[in-house]
Design a binder for these strands. Structure first.
Lengths: 205, 205
DNA sequence: TTGGAATTTTTCCATCTGGTCAAATGCTAC
DNA sequence: GTAGCATTTGACCAGATGGAAAAATTCCAA
């Protein structure tokens, strides 16, 4: 049996490092992040960092691996036995809440993917694709039953990802355009997205 | 009179450099881009680059400044005298075409904004905000006239940006999930986005 | 053709950065 | 208390990178 048990002390230090690394990676991307920056954010020396994670890459991988589950949770929770419109409304709500609560995680992934996902390509065509295909099958079923407008399920998921993560990844732009960084922007966003996705722009006459 | 005229030769070389720089900046972000990489992509020596642009930053600024106009064109073209639904449908079409034709430009901006827009903050709260506010006024007018569902205009614009630029910025993810890099994804995307934005997911009964 | 300006390259440098090493310190079981 | 292990750090290194200098080459007008 491999010893996967780590002392609580070690686990706590690793968590502190990963939290600092998340800050720095989200703000500067993998290449832009420096070990000095992460060490300083974690309140320790650079060699001490490398005592816990042998390389910068290892830190990055640990972050991505550890966060992927949480990141995909909202989609996992899409319930095939639920009412389609309400399920999607709830999914949008969960995903937007995720962007609000975990903006660093969102920007970590965004940085990685915008630059061609050099370090997580396999995850995209593996877990991620599998999950989307599974959920797309549910959406297709709903569409066939006439309980959902006939859209491409994968692209619908893309649209929900794009609009919700926008409030994390492009937050500085959103705040600049709105001329405000009041948290209320998330409420307005949710209201707008619900109307858009559920009933669209055409006035119901 | 300041001499803003540059020889055609110089202009051509500058254009060649900026094209190479766009490649590299889009792929690696500002920090990740190297002068060696840009020089190599432009087919010239590094010091020769610096003969035309004194610093890496200057190249980056030249790119952002030069591309902002093109980038905002689709929104500029929103016509207050047009039919609201058709205007927005056309805007979505233009913006998606932009993402398809100019993915590098989209990723250049995405890289910059995800990392906090350290070099274009003023543009965001200047030109960009002004343009959005101007167009939001048009949308508000349409909403007051009952020709558009009552959504927050700025957030509607955000949603259109997010969904269309997604096909440039997150292209590797889109292709990985779809398991295809066929150009047809843009057609499917357009069809899906039109249905979503115009009529929403709720089946018309 | 030729002189001077524009362009290009070779060489070089200072700094930053990921990572190593050995020494020092702290912690815990006995 | 102390032996032995875990943790932490200061000093250091090699390669990458942004940029400077100056020489070499090309181009063009007269």
């Amino acid at each position: 049996m491999t010893n996967t048990e780590r002392s609580p002390r070690r686990a706590a230090t690793e968590a502190r490092i990963l939290d600092a690394a998340l800050d720095v990676f989200a703000d500067h991307g993998f290449r832009g992040a420096t070990l000095d920056g992460i060490a300083s954010a974690a309140g320790m020396s650079k060699p001490n960092l490398l005592y816990y994670f042998a390389t910068k890459e290892e830190m990055h991988v640990a972050l991505l691996d550890g966060l992927m589950d949480t990141w995909l949770d909202p989609l996992e929770a899409l319930d095939p036995t639920g009412e389609p419109i309400e399920e999607l409304r709830a999914y949008i709500r969960r995903k937007l809440a995720m962007a609000q609560r975990y903006p660093r995680e969102s920007r970590l992934f965004a940085n990685e993917i915008v630059q061609g996902a050099p370090r997580i390509a396999s995850m995209l065509s593996g877990r991620l694709r599998a999950l989307v295909q599974a959920k797309a099958a549910i959406l297709d079923e709903w569409i066939m039953q006439g309980r959902l407008a006939p859209v491409d399920p994968a692209h619908l998921i893309f649209a929900i990802w794009a609009t919700t993560q926008h409030y994390a990844d492009f937050d500085v732009q959103v705040c600049a355009v709105l001329d405000s960084d009041d948290d209320a922007r998330f409420d307005t966003a949710l209201a707008t997205l619900e109307i858009l996705f559920i009933d669209g722009l055409r006035p119901r006459g």
